[in-house]
Design a protein around this nucleic acid. Structure first.
Length: 584
RNA sequence: GCCCCCGUAGCUCAGUGGAUAGAGCACCGGCCUCCGGAGCCGGGUGCGCAGGUUCGAGUCCUGCCGGGGGCGCCA
C-alpha cells in the first residue's frame, strides 16, 4: 500500500526505509531481521529472506516475494525486485531522495534525530599523569574521546566528561621532595616552561642516587596519605601546574576538556575504605599473600590459577583497582550514568574487564548499565615501531602539534594565493595541521595500531582531513564567487544526472552514520562517510555545471546540493572536533 | 607456558554472515579556452596457513604461523 507522496516528514530516509522493511518482514515472521545493506546491484539490498526461509522451511525466493508483496515501499523505491537466491534489491525513487534532501536541508540538525531516550553517558578519556608530559598515547585517548563526546552530545545524550588524571601514588613523595630541594619558586618556574618530564627525571635521579632523599620521599608519601596540610599544599601546586599545562594542549588541540572535567584518582581516596568494606561484606574479598583481592570468575594467570584483582596491597595501601572500582560506583550511583565509556589503550583490556566483572559482582554495575572499553592500538612510526623521537624518547604532544601547524603552514605557503592575509594563513594552518593529526587518528579503526605519517595525513588526497576540509572550502568558494547566498534551506533539488543522484544517496546516509558512531564508538565510520561524500561531491562538481547551469531552476537546484553538502561536511567535521575553514 | 589484540593489493587502510572483496598512495594512460587541476575518468594485483560450522565465511569456531601487548601488590 503506497502512501501519497510529499506530505510526511522524512528527516531520515534510510531509517524510514529500514522501518518499512522491518514491518514487511514482521508480516511474514515476527521479529525477522531484514538485514538491510548497501548493494552494488541496487542502492540497497535486504538479505533477511534467506535466513528466514531456513527458519520457516520455505524456499527463499518465495519468502522474498512474500516480503515484497507486503512491503509498503511505493513512495520510497522506484524498483523493488527479488534477485538471485532471495535477495531483495531496492532502488530509491528520485522523488523520495529529493524529498529527503529537502527535509534534511530544512533541518538545523541535518536529519539527525535526537536519541530517544536520552542517556547519561560518562566518558573517561585523556587521563594524563601529573608531572609528566602528555605523549602520543594520550593523544589517541583525547582525540577519540572528544569525538565520541561530541557525537553523543549532538544526539542529545547527557555527556559527562571525566579526565581521570594520575595525581596520586608513591611517586609524589619524591616529586614533592624534589620541589622542596629546588625551592618552590624555582620549581614552579621550571614546571611552567612546560618541561614536566625533566622535572620528573631529576626527581627520579635524586631518588635513585641519594638514600637520604629516598627516605625523605617515603616519609613524604606517608604525610601525603595522612593529609598533612603543608604536604597537601605542595602536592596541589604540582597538580595545578600540570593541569594548566594539560589545558594548553587541550586548547591547542581544540577539544572540549576543561580543568573542571579533571576528576583525578585522588578524588576517590575517601571512598576506598568503603570499597574494601563493601567487598568484604559481600564475601567477595579474599586475603592472599597479605593482599586483599577479588577473584572474578573467568580470569586466570600464567599457571592457570584464578587471577586476582588486588584491591588493597599487603602494606595496607590501595591499588589502582580500588580507585577504578570506586569510580565505577560513583559514576553509577552518584552521577546516575546509564553508559560508561573508557577510552583507554588496548593493553589495559584485561584490567578493565576484571574491574567491570568485580563491579558487577559487587552490585555497583547493574545489568542496565553498559560499561565499554573503547580500546585503541598504539601509535607507530613509519618504521612500524613505537612512535618515538629520533633519539628514542617519547614525543611531547606540544612539540608534535607545533610541528603539525608548521608543516601545514609550509604546505599552504607553497601553494597559497598571493593576496592572502598572513594572519589568516596562520589561522588556517592551525586548522589544517591540527585537523590532519586528529583526522588521521580517527580515520583508522581504533583497535588497530596506526602509523603516524606526516606526509600521508597532510596529503590533500584520500581519506584525510585536508581532503575533506578542501572539499568544504571549495564549495564555500562557489558562493563567494557567485556573490550569492545559498538557496533557501529546504529547496528541493532536481536529481537528473547520475552524479546528482549519487550525491543525494551519499548525503542521506548522514543520520544513520552518526547514530552508528554513537552506538559502536567507532569514529572512523564518520571519517569514511565524509571522505566518500567529499569525493562524490567532486565527481558531481566536475560533471554538473553549477554557476553556469543551463537553466536558473537547475542552477538553484545545484546550489542547494552544494550548500547541503557543505553543511554536512562541516557538521561531520565538527562532530570529529575538526574545523571547516571557509577558504584554504 | 596461559590470555588478549592484530594479520586484506607493493604501501596506508575500509569491509555490521550474503551475490563479482573496495578506496587512497605509488605505477601507466586519458581529460585542461579548467564554476579552486590540491581535480576528474579509466587501467591490476590481495583476504597469513589448514580444518570446521553454514544454503553462503575476509567476517563465526578450532589448531598452527607471524607481529604486538598483558599475566599480584606501578598507575
Amino acid at each position: 500500500m503506497a502512501r501519497g507522496g510529499g506530505e510526511w516528514a522524512m528527516p531520515d530516509l534510510l531509517q524510514t526505509l529500514a522501518d518499512r522493511l522491518a514491518a514487511a518482514f514482521a508480516q511474514v515472521a515476527p521479529g525477522a531481521d531484514p538485514v538491510l545493506r548497501r548493494s552494488d546491484r541496487a542502492d540497497f539490498q535486504a538479505n533477511g529472506a534467506l535466513a528466514l526461509a531456513k527458519r520457516l522451511g520455505r524456499p527463499p525466493q518465495e519468502v522474498a516475494e512474500a516480503v515484497v508483496r507486503g512491503a509498503d515501499l511505493g513512495d520510497l523505491c522506484e524498483r523493488v525486485e527479488v534477485s538471485g537466491p532471495g535477495f531483495v534489491n531496492l532502488t530509491l525513487a528520485a522523488d523520495a531522495l529529493a524529498e529527503a534532501l529537502s527535509t534534511m536541508g530544512a533541518d538545523d540538525r541535518l536529519g539527525v534525530a535526537r536519541s530517544e531516550p536520552a542517556e547519561r553517558v560518562v566518558v573517561d578519556y585523556s587521563a594524563p599523569n601529573v608531572a609528566k608530559e602528555m605523549h602520543v598515547g594520550h593523544l589517541r585517548s583525547t582525540i577519540i574521546g572528544d569525538a565520541l563526546v561530541r557525537v553523543l552530545g549532538f544526539l542529545g545524550h547527557e555527556v559527562i566528561r571525566e579526565n581521570h588524571v594520575g595525581d596520586w601514588g608513591t611517586p609524589f613523595g619524591m616529586l614533592i621532595e624534589h620541589l622542596l630541594d629546588l625551592g618552590e619558586a624555582a620549581a614552579l618556574k621550571e614546571l611552567s616552561v612546560g618541561d614536566l618530564d625533566a622535572f620528573y627525571r631529576e626527581a627520579r635521579a635524586s631518588f635513585d642516587a641519594d638514600p637520604a632523599f629516598r627516605e625523605r620521599s617515603r616519609r613524604r608519601v606517608v604525610l601525603l596519605q595522612a593529609k598533612d596540610p603543608e604536604t597537601l599544599r605542595l602536592w596541589q601546586l604540582l597538580v595545578a601546574e600540570s593541569v594548566r599545562a594539560f589545558q594548553e594542549v587541550y586548547d591547542t588541540l581544540g577539544v572540549l576538556l576543561r580543568p573542571e572535567d579533571v576528576v583525578g584518582e585522588s578524588a576517590y581516596n575517601d571512598q576506598l575504605p568503603e570499597i574494601v568494606a563493601e567487598l568484604e561484606a559481600k564475601g567477595l574479598l579474599v586475603e592472599d599473600q597479605g593482599a586483599r583481592c577479588v577473584f572474578p570468575p573467568g580470569f586466570t594467570n600464567r599457571e592457570g590459577q584464578p587471577l586476582p584483582l588486588i584491591v588493597q596491597k599487603s602494606d595496607g595501601g590501595f591499588g589502582y583497582a580500588a580507585t577504578d572500582l570506586a569510580a565505577i560506583r560513583d559514576r553509577v550511583q552518584r552521577l546516575g550514568a546509564r553508559r560508561l565509556l573508557y577510552v583507554v589503550g588496548a593493553p589495559q583490556a584485561q584490567h578493565l574487564q576484571m574491574c567491570f566483572a568485580v563491579a558487577r559482582l559487587a552490585g555497583w554495575l547493574p545489568e542496565a548499565v553498559d560499561a565499554e572499553h573503547v580500546a585503541f592500538g598504539s601509535v607507530l612510526g613509519t618504521d612500524g615501531k613505537m612512535f618515538r623521537t629520533r633519539a628514542g624518547g617519547t614525543v611531547k604532544l606540544a612539540d608534535l602539534l607545533q610541528e603539525a601547524v608548521a608543516r601545514a603552514e609550509a604546505a599552504l605557503a607553497e601553494r597559497g594565493q598571493e593576496d592572502e592575509d598572513p594572519a589568516e594563513r596562520r589561522a588556517v594552518a592551525r586548522q589544517l595541521g591540527i585537523g590532519a593529526v586528529k583526522y588521521a587518528d580517527l580515520a583508522t579503526e581504533r583497535t588497530r595500531d596506526y602509523v603516524f605519517d606526516w606526509n600521508r595525513m597532510l596529503a590533500f588526497e584520500g581519506n584525510t582531513g585536508p581532503y575533506v576540509q578542501y572539499a568544504h572550502a571549495r564549495i564555500r568558494s562557489i558562493f563567494r564567487r557567485a556573490a550569492t547566498e545559498p538557496p533557501p534551506r529546504g529547496t528541493r533539488p532536481l536529481l537528473e544526472a547520475p552524479e546528482e543522484r549519487a550525491l543525494a544517496l551519499a548525503l542521506v546516509a548522514f543520520p544513520q552514520t552518526v547514530a552508528e558512531v554513537a552506538r559502536s564508538a567507532f569514529p572512523h565510520r564518520l571519517c569514511q562517510f565524509l571522505s566518500e561524500l567529499a569525493s562524490t561531491f567532486t565527481a558531481f562538481y566536475e560533471t554538473c555545471p553549477v554557476l553556469r547551469a543551463e537553466t536558473e531552476e537547475r542552477r538553484q537546484s545545484r546550489l542547494a546540493l552544494c550548500d547541503l553538502t557543505a553543511r554536512v561536511l562541516a557538521q561531520g567535521l565538527d562532530l570529529l572536533g575538526i574545523a571547516a575553514p571557509e577558504r584554504m
